[in-house]
Design a protein around this nucleic acid. Structure first.
Lengths: 207, 207
DNA sequence: GCCCAACTTTGTCAGGTGACAAAGTCGGCC
DNA sequence: GGCCGACTTTGTCACCTGACAAAGTTGGGC
């Protein structure tokens, strides 16, 4: 095996762990399996990261960065406000249901984080970062249309992202890999978009 | 250890597994740990259930039954329609965030189910059962008030429950055990209730 | 009162886990 | 050109896992 500086080995191992776990689940991410994925001795993992949890931490950070990058890269098109939101959300949905296992992996880490304070801190920070990004994009979009948001952008973001996460979880629970998404889930997504846009514009029924 | 018929041992083991896993997480639910929780030999688990997965299945079914029972037992009070919904949702929230670990456990099983077709089937059925229950209660409530729902009850239920699950997950990710819930989460819950009620009554901004 | 089937216990297996130590190998720097 | 520190490999702990077999033990039915 070639001699590679640790600064290169690190991202290689993170990527190997990410690939393996996205494919076969967090539970399959033993240090041995991850090392084998990269074609490296098991002890290399411990040499590079010290502890398995440190590797996991790095994987989650990588996953977060990718996710936020994808969100930011989405193209809202140039329609009216509501249509732009719709386009962004659909892009996000495509991204989350692409079947590369990254979304599942994030859910698994979220489950792990409930029992592990260290992981919880990371996942919590990640969530806040995503919410911040969403709020920021929403604000920018509204501003571009000269719209004054009826609710603080952050509140809309939290409401929307909670609904979105719930729907992706539902999708993951209901889907059969080959088939299209459950129509109830897709309908839920449309309702969510409509209510979120309504929230922004100050729909009368909302207290 | 006393000689107990398997028909009694079964629920005892399920309860022991439930207690243990709610307390320490699914990962701590080895057959040995579960047997020890009940004060029984490890092989008893295999005698009674054959396979660990069969035990897990039984635990999930128990958890589902409890959850639906709690939902059904909630008291909507006797205010106007919107207030009754609100009361029910708050009861559900209290139930889900009580800190007995059952909610966390359900999330963990949902994560497991993403990689295990057998579990997925159970969790999927559970989800549909909960949605059906919610839709049913919503219909009954609307009928009692002479309200004609602007959307099919099932659609409202899917939308609401997805949002609710997202918010409980957010709560689980953000909370620090001793402290009160994150205000953003609670605000999200209120927004969710308001939009769900608005959906029922046919809020104008919703397409 | 006894006997058979249902249940429980003890013991063991093969395999997987995270972690580490020690020896080996490589590459850049002097 | 050699050497020293950074990296890799091999080997090995101690432990935990699900599963099973075989030998008890118990209780209900006759």
């Amino acid at each position: 095996m070639a001699h590679v500086p640790a600064s290169e080995r690190r991202p290689q191992l993170v990527q190997a762990a990410l690939d393996l776990m996205a494919r076969e689940g967090v539970a399959a991410g033993s240090t041995r399996a991850i090392a084998a994925e990269l074609g490296v001795a098991q002890a290399t993992v411990h040499y590079t990261f010290g502890t398995k949890k440190d590797l996991y931490r790095a994987v989650v950070e990588q996953l977060t960065a990718e996710f936020i990058g994808n969100v930011r890269a989405a193209d809202p098109g140039d329609g009216p406000f509501g249509e732009q939101i719709r386009a962004l959300v659909h892009a996000l949905w495509e991204n989350s249901t692409r079947g590369d296992g990254h979304c599942e992996l994030l859910s698994e880490f979220a489950a792990l984080a409930m029992r592990d304070p260290d992981l919880q801190e990371i996942m919590s920070a990640m969530q806040r970062e995503i919410e911040g990004t969403a709020a920021e994009m929403l604000t920018a979009l509204a501003e571009a249309h000269g719209i004054r948001l009826a609710l603080p952008a952050r509140e809309v973001a939290v409401f929307f992202l909670a609904g979105f996460d719930g729907l992706t979880d539902r999708h993951l629970a209901q889907r059969t890999p080959g088939e299209p998404a459950d129509p109830d889930t897709l309908r839920g997504l449309e309702v969510l978009i409509a209510t979120a846009v309504g929230l922004c514009l100050g729909a009368p029924a909302i207290s």
